[in-house]
Write a protein that binds this DNA or RNA. Sequence first.
DNA 1: AGCCCTTTGAAGGAT
DNA 2: ATCCTTCAAAGGGCT
Length: 572
Amino acid sequence: MPQLNGGGGDDLGANDELISFKDEGEQEEKISENVSSERDLDEVKSSLVNESENNSSSSDSEQTDRRPRPRPELEIYEKQREHFAEALRRQQDGGFFKGPPYAGYPFLMIPDITNPYLSNGSLSPSTRTYLQMKWPLLDVPGSAALKDSRSPTPVHLSNKVPVVQHPHHVHPLTPLITYSNEHFSPGTPPSHLSPEILDPKTGIPRTPHPSELSPYYPLSPGAVGQIPHPLGWLVPQQGQHMYSIPPGGFRHPYPALAMNASMSSLVSSRFSPHMVPHPPHGLHQTGIPHPAIVSPAIKQEPSADSASNSTHGKPSVPMKKEEEKKPHIKKPLNAFMLYMKEMRAKVVAECTLKESAAINQILGRRWHSLSREEQAKYYELARKERQLHSQLYPGWSARDNYGKRKKRKRDNKPDSPEENNFSPQPKKQCVPYLPSEKMCDSPTSSHGSMLDSPATPSAALASPAAPAATHSEQAQPLSLTTKPEGRGHHSHFPLPGKASGSSSTSLSSSTSTHPSISLHSQSAALLSRPIPFTTLPPSLLSASSPFHQAALHSHHALLQTQPLSLVTKSVE
DNA sequence: AGCCCTTTGAAGGAT
DNA sequence: ATCCTTCAAAGGGCT
């Protein structure tokens, strides 16, 4: 039974213990649903262990003390959050350097793609570094590269301090720190980079952790204006490594990127990034690309006519083509996309399937099977991603990308009731994926109950953390449980829909280091997850009594156990 | 070559 | 406020 932390706890982990999302019955249900293979059983066991650990205090203490117990990872988390908030405050305030040689210049954190470590796929992406954009773009060679963490030691070998870790081998932040490095060959770190410290464990040079440096983000030429990674709340402490190379290699989320516009201009002005003229190679003069910018010319083939045109100065390129070749700033990845990006390789490795459509079905189901804590990581990650994106491209709008793809065919939604009743939907049939999915928790694996069946019905109904809400909200996606108990205050079952304010990715919201939990906003978060009510009979949609909600619960649970084909196709 | 498929979530326009 | 559409990743399949 979800319970809000009335004490104003804004700590992710603390709230983890304050809010219980699953009861034992749901866990049993989860077991019965998921025990379709040994592997699934193992996953369920491990997940239940984690959940039992997480909920150990909540299950028996709903009426008792729910005060969070001190956890070292939470302390680290808090520290990192404060770092992050401080960085954002600085950027919000202009982020001016306070010392020579750039005193008075605002800084902007950008990923340093010139970091040679990043170019080596065998090294941890945690070696990602950042450059400080000097204003106005002072030409300082090798400007102030700073490394977050330096040891390439795998996380599982180097963790001494417990941190919030992703259960999988690949850290969820991995997609975010894959900012482009493909176009930069490995090399020796420039000597003028920030002072390095030899890691006593690994012997690998590293730059000092911010905690080892000036609290005001060192202003030396080698480390001017250092600010923490915007995702620093998850960035490991020194000597730790949160990141690892994904199985499929080290790819950035935005392929073939080019930072065409002056970063500082983007920050200081509000014009749309695609209006910024861009060099032929799509790279800024500083050589700083950003993953979200995609130049079609680059994305296709470097040897394409675009390159020759630029090099040979052929003026024959039509204006339309010029238009088309404008850099394409892609949308930031949402939580599920980040999850997919991280887990795809794993699923592909486990399964014989290669089709992305099938893989995505599995991933979608696994996504629902994730615990709230795990999902919260990705929601938070996505929020950071959007935040960073909005910082880098203040004038960008998702609308800008409309039309970048060819408009998809009208989806399955029928245009007429007749179609609605009688037209079979050729799409979304998972039958072709049946045979090879035994080893995977495929959409139609085993008894077929796995398909689209989250760990619990409430998981399917649960709100994702309110998008871009306060941190607490984000990290604490409250359960939109259909269980009647304790939800009497909801006179009506919430209808699916977007949480209001879902687009609030403003800095102000995210800089709220200690946001107070608003019950109202929490409630909004509760309602934010779309629910497939189209599969429910209308009589249940208005379920208001505990009895009705219980019926809804069981009904939805039943639906959850149906193969996708039964859900997406008309029931015979 | 380029679209389709498939997933969830975010965003923004339309109603 | 809600609904609808588009796009984000991925890569095999298909036209």
